[in-house]
Each structure stands twice: as structure tokens, then as C-alpha cells.
Design a protein around this nucleic acid. Structure first.
Lengths: 196, 196
DNA sequence: CCAACCATGTAAGCCGTTACATGATTCC
DNA sequence: GGAATCATGTAACGGCTTACATGGTTGG
């Protein structure tokens, strides 16, 4: 799925500017399964326009730079549905973090602990973002995608929390030491784990 | 994490040919978090060799083409540990399948059902592969990475199984109809769900 | 005052993909 | 007889990333 198709899809939700699409991909309901940079989005929109799949309207704003709002045309809608009707490409997943954990025995135990603590924070941030997306989802599909993300990140978080640090001396630490929260400002976010 | 670093990492497990690395990435203990094609692997190995991070030995075989076996040099080991010691890159995840499900309301219910059935198969295949990897893991890190994969794919499978098809008329089908197994030859693999 | 946000783009270059090229062996 | 496995590579092309370029507004 190239950036062009991604943009076309995002615009199916309603008209938006290139900047808004980037926000949607970074912090919105697509944050856990799409990625694209500005330098990929803007040319993609230009080409979609050239191909007649989207239309542009330039909008002036008060105290803000002018923006170009893109909207899907009937041809664009058709093309997108056709893309979803044909064979779906495989997922692509690469995790340098899992590579690092795989090779935990090459690293000092302190380093491994830090990596796991950072990963917990990452999971909680993702869970917080996706929870918002779920709350404002307007279609069953949007809810489905969000809940799938929550299910997966919660499973990951649970594993991170329950499993002893690999290759560390204190693989079975006394219970008293297990409970410390590595990042105080995030502990509030943990509540979110049991929403939905 | 580019293919060069991936290859260097894989070779930390022991000497291997380019072809063997590909197998490791496709079906081995890295299948759920690494990807690389032959056309990326071979040049990567050539460059690692040029940079002195790996060494090559050509090995003739009976009834098999000659192969080049690569092994990490001390400099390569150092470089890899250094890479794991610095900042770890973000994961990259793109899921055309989740895009399709997000837009389930644009598709015929039958199509959505098919997509979900195919996804279940995909999860079971991944679970089977990772279970093997877990069984033959020789370091705590390898076990950790495998178990993380299992946790995540099991959570995904559970969600797929328990959640009604989005946007379908029979969102609450009678219990009698919920239990059918979409792919008989895979039902055996379901047992694997409760191993570990 | 500095950081972050809003807003759009271009240019150069790397990286990796598909497709091509070759060829023996084993299993169904 | 055909498909899959073992085994290594090249060429062309496309896509995406980083870095550059610009500039007003808002909030701490």
C-alpha cells in the first residue's frame, strides 16, 4: 500500500489538507497501522489530483497559511473500493526493538531494563492515542480497527509487565521490587488499560 | 534498521549463507519482525564484507551449488553491539488489511467475512512458525522475542474470533452459527494456541 | 524568547523492490 | 513432467527519506 492509496483512503473520511492527513497518520485513528512523511504526502496528493481521483479547493484562513483542501471524486471512490476488493497486500512489520531484545545477552542488564521500560511507555502512548480514536470512531470499521490495536498493544504491555527481563540476574525478583513504576507521569495513563 | 544491520545481526547467531539468512527471516525466529528480499541481502553481505564486518568462506557441496558462508568478525561484533547500544529506531508497521477493515462499510459483507477468515489463517500460520522458533530458542532473548510474538498474534486471533464482523447484518448471529471453522486443514493448528 | 504548531513544497540520494538470468536436484 | 528447494547474483526503476526553504501564530 503506497502513500498515494493511503491518502486516497484517508480522504474517504472527508475532505482534508495534506497537513491534516499527516496528523491523522501520526496521532489519529490510523496511527498504529499507517506511516507517511510530508515529503511523501504532498507529491502523492498532486498525483492523485492529476489522475482525477481527488479534487482541490484552496482555502484562505485567518491568521493561518492558506491551505489546499482535497476531496475524493467519484472516480477516486471507485478506485479505492476497487483496491480494497482486489488482493490485499501483506503487512509490513519491522521492529529494531525486538532485534535488540532477541540479542539481550549481548547487552548489559541495565540496558535491557531501560529498553523494556521505554517500550512500556511507548505501548501506553499508543494505547492512549488509539483509545481516543476508538472513542470518536463513527463507523463499525473504525471501531474494529481501533479495538484491534488496543487488543494487540495491551497484550504486548501485559507481556512486558509480566515477564522477567531476559538474561538478567534477578529473573525472579522479590515481589516487593516488582511493582515500581518506571515513569511516574505515565502511571495515570495506565488507567486507560481498563477502559473499553 | 537497514538490511545490512539485519544481516549482521542474524550472523551473530552463527555463520550462514545469504540463502540461509533469507530462510531465517521468512520462516525462522525473525519471521515476525524482520523482512528482506534476496536482492537486498546479497548486496548487503557484499558490503559488510567490504567493510570488514563479516568474512566469507566459499564452500563446495555435494549435489548442491557452491555457497558462500559468512561469519561475523570481531569488528562486526563490535559494530552490532554498538548499534544496539545507541538509540533504537522506531518500529515500522503498515497494515493494508487494517485499512480494509477500517473501511468495512464500503465493502460487501461477504468480502469482509472473507478478509477476516484469511486473517485468522494468517495468524495461525504465524503462531505455528513462532512456536517452532520458541521451541528451538537457545537464548533467553530468543525466547523473549518469540513469546512476545505469540502473545501479540494470540491477542489478534482472539479478537478476530470473538468480535462480530463489522458492518454486517448478523452482528449477533445465533450461537449455533458462530462456531463453524472456516478452514478445516488449519483447525489442527489451533491446538498450538494453548501450548506455552 | 523559544518551542511547537500550522502549512506547503523541492532536491538529492539511498534503499529496496520486481524482474531477469542460470542451473542442478529432489519430491510428488 | 512440474514444482519446490538450493544457491547467487544484476539491472532498472520507483518510492521514500533526509535536508532544505519559508514564514506567520500561539502558548509557556
Amino acid at each position: 500500500m503506497d502513500v498515494r492509496t493511503q491518502c486516497l483512503g484517508l480522504l474517504m473520511r472527508g475532505p482534508a489538507s495534506g497537513y491534516a492527513l499527516k496528523r491523522l497518520i501520526e496521532n489519529g485513528p490510523f496511527c498504529h497501522f499507517l506511516e507517511a512523511s510530508f515529503a511523501a504526502i504532498y507529491p502523492a496528493l498532486a498525483r492523485l489530483t492529476a489522475d482525477g481521483l481527488v479534487s482541490v479547493t484552496e482555502e484562505a484562513q485567518d491568521r493561518r497559511p492558506q491551505k489546499k483542501v482535497y476531496a475524493v471524486t467519484p472516480a477516486g471512490r471507485e478506485a479505492f473500493v476497487a483496491a480494497l476488493s482486489g488482493p490485499i497486500e501483506d503487512d509490513h512489520f519491522r521492529s529494531p526493538w525486538l532485534v535488540a531484545l532477541y540479542f539481550a545477552d549481548l547487552l548489559p542488564p541495565e540496558r535491557v531494563k531501560t529498553l523494556i521500560a521505554e517500550r512500556k511507555d511507548y505501548c501506553l502512548r499508543q494505547i492512549a492515542l488509539i483509545s481516543e480514536a476508538r472513542a470518536s470512531a463513527e463507523t463499525p470499521g473504525a471501531r474494529y480497527a481501533a479495538e484491534m490495536g488496543l487488543a494487540v498493544f495491551r497484550a504486548e504491555f501485559a507481556y512486558l509487565t509480566q515477564t522477567p527481563v531476559p538474561g538478567s540476574a534477578d529473573a525472579n525478583p522479590p515481589l516487593a521490587r516488582q511493582r515500581k513504576s518506571p515513569n511516574p507521569h505515565l502511571s495515570a495513563a495506565v488507567s486507560v488499560l481498563h477502559d473499553v
